[in-house]
Design a binder for these strands. Structure first.
Length: 571
DNA sequence: GCCGTTTTCGGCCCGACTGTTTTCAGTCG
């Protein structure tokens, strides 16, 4: 039972209660509980099994703690099953359509007997929705658009695509004279691995002209809203972009508000309230008087807090940490001194050894580990013992010619189904850097997967576990293992965990990163480069590391080449 | 349903935009 499954039960309960028009605060409790469990790095099943009390988790009281126990043992809970009997099974799906909330869904069901997305589509297409009270032709059109979007986008946009869109939008907006300042906000600014939409804050000398300019952006397919305060559009790619107009004196408060997360904002607002203040997107107010708002620093300061980096604003303890003066000094891109996961054309990389080295040097790195695949990865023409030895000789020979740069002879060796490594340990022991990864048999049951990873970690020849969860965002689920046991084995054997920067992976995920750090593990921010341009993906890995509360000292490849050499010395 | 440095009961974050209405409900973030 995964945390996401427990969270899903609570979210489903909340959905049904909403359609039923239940007490909104009760509904919020279920939503909060879903988030609380979903954000937990430890598995809730293990947490409970270890005898810890779910009531210690934020937003979990006696009732929800009982339901967690019930869900863990039965996969569902009585409350959900009883609620389900009161509605058609697919009715809550309608809530996913943008523009449809619980009240409209209820009306569609009551008045038109619509119980599924398919029925909604045919009713809207047939023009039957416009006759309902409170709905008109526009509503009907928006439902059809919402359905189309739902079918097309299938979820959120990856960070890489979002970054590319943001850069392109910035280039367009820089040419508009009426715009004085533009800053990204939302989950994009918090560097989440996927974003729902892109948010920008705009200071304009003339809002009407600025809006005209924005809407001339060539990739806009559909204008969703245009008001005094905001312009909202959908791009041809399906991504929604919101632009909010703000004034100088409210910019900081607005930036905080639109950066979120929502949960973080609520914590700050409650805190303001306690001091007799009011915090909204226009500023921090005492009565009618705005006491802060121009910059984020000013607002945080007026709340008695230091500035909190956006990556931490998830209501995962950052406000408390800020209050105690214990915010981490987050790692920066510039702290990275080398890359420890790179492929060449010896296996499935696109570039030669020499090209990869030149690219690493051009980025100011002091070292690079060549980690081609081992033989089990046949599709990548993985290396056997003899081929690897030959490559290592070549790597070392070339490395000796390089001044002030350490070229590590390494490998990305497969962890086989039984936990053995894909190459003889004596060959692996000759290398400077051994990254071990799972690429096959990803469906193993949890206990066997845990044993498999622990066996590899305890081999004594492995430095790092590559992309530990093996997930591909939006495409393939994570492999299942007990993180606490695996982390404990890493701690015992001095093995690092990789934060793979590849945008599809971003693995170790942020919450596990935070947990691994608490356990005292060292992470490696690597790119898994398959071509020279991939070396720049490290930016995304840094985003994950920062979201995982990591400091420079928690990441191995912030060490200088000489310090790393000492650290990696084979016994 | 949760929670408590005024409270174990009575609160629970806050505002904009749309579409449908003639003053507002629903939705969104």
């Amino acid at each position: 039972m995964e945390n996401s499954q427990v969270a899903a039960v609570f979210d489903q309960i909340a959905d049904i209660l909403e359609i039923q028009g239940e007490n909104p605060f009760r509904i919020r409790s279920y939503r909060n509980a879903a988030r609380s469990v979903g954000d937990l790095s430890e598995r809730i099943a293990d947490y409970v099994a270890a005898g810890k009390d779910p009531e210690d988790l934020p937003g979990i009281g006696e009732s929800l703690a009982g339901k967690i126990g019930e869900i863990l043992s039965t996969g569902t809970c009585r409350t959900l099953e009883d609620l389900r009997k009161k509605l058609p099974p697919h009715l809550p799906d309608l809530l996913k359509v943008k523009g449809l909330g619980p009240r409209k869904v209820k009306a569609l069901w009551d008045k038109l007997n619509i119980t599924s997305l398919a029925e909604l589509k045919s009713a809207a297409a047939a023009g039957r929705i416009r006759d309902l009270e409170g709905m008109g032709e526009k509503t009907e059109q928006n439902i059809l658009k919402g359905l189309a979007t739902l079918e097309a986008e299938a979820g959120r946009t990856g960070i890489r695509q979002a970054t590319e869109h943001a850069a392109s939008i910035r280039r367009h907006l820089e040419g508009i004279k009426a715009i004085r300042r533009l800053e990204p906000a939302g989950s994009f600014r918090r560097r989440r691995e996927t974003v729902g939409d892109l948010d920008f804050l705009v200071i304009a000398s003339d809002r009407a002209k600025a809006a005209d300019g924005i809407l001339r952006y060539e990739s806009i397919e559909d204008v969703l809203a245009r008001g005094e305060e905001k312009v909202s559009a959908r791009l041809a790619s399906g991504v929604q972009v919101d632009f909010r107009f703000v004034e100088d004196e409210e910019f900081g408060a607005a930036w905080m508000y639109f950066t979120g997360s929502k949960a973080h904002n609520i914590v700050l607002r409650k805190r303001a309230q306690k001091d007799g203040l009011k915090l909204n997107e226009y500023g921090l107010f005492r009565g009618e008087e705005r006491i802060a708002g121009r910059s984020e620093e000013e607002v945080f300061k007026a709340l008695g807090l230091p500035w909190i980096p956006p990556e931490l604003r998830e209501d995962r303890g950052e406000v408390d940490a800020a209050e105690r003066g214990q915010l981490p000094q987050l790692i920066e891109r510039e702290d990275i001194r080398g890359d420890l996961h790179a492929h060449t054309n010896a296996t499935d990389g696109a570039n030669t050894l020499e090209e990869m080295v030149a690219a690493a040097q051009a980025r100011g790195y002091e070292y690079l580990a060549i980690t081609d695949h081992s033989k089990a990865v046949t599709v990548a023409r993985g290396l056997n013992e003899a081929a690897l030895r030959k490559q290592a000789d070549r790597v070392r020979a070339y490395g000796e010619k390089l001044k002030g740069f350490w070229l590590l002879a390494g490998v990305e060796v497969d962890i086989l189904k039984d936990g053995k490594l894909d190459l003889q340990e004596k060959v692996l022991a000759e290398l400077d850097w051994v990254c071990a990864s799972v690429h096959s048999a990803m469906e193993l049951p949890e206990d066997r997967m845990t044993q498999r990873l622990v066996a590899a970690i305890r081999s004594g020849v492995v430095h790092c576990i590559g992309h530990p969860f093996g997930r591909l965002i939006g495409k393939r689920d994570a492999i299942r293992f007990d993180p606490e046991k695996v982390f404990a084995a890493c701690k015992e054997s001095g093995v690092c965990l990789e934060i793979n920067s590849y945008p599809d992976r971003l693995d170790l995920p942020d919450v596990h990163c935070k947990r691994a750090c608490e356990v005292g593990l060292t992470m490696v921010v690597s790119t898994d480069s398959h071509k020279i341009a991939d070396l720049d993906l490290v930016e995304y890995g840094i985003g994950v590391a920062r979201r995982g509360w990591l400091e420079k000292k928690d990441v191995l490849n912030t060490l200088s080449a000489s310090a790393l050499r000492k650290r990696l010395k084979r016994k």
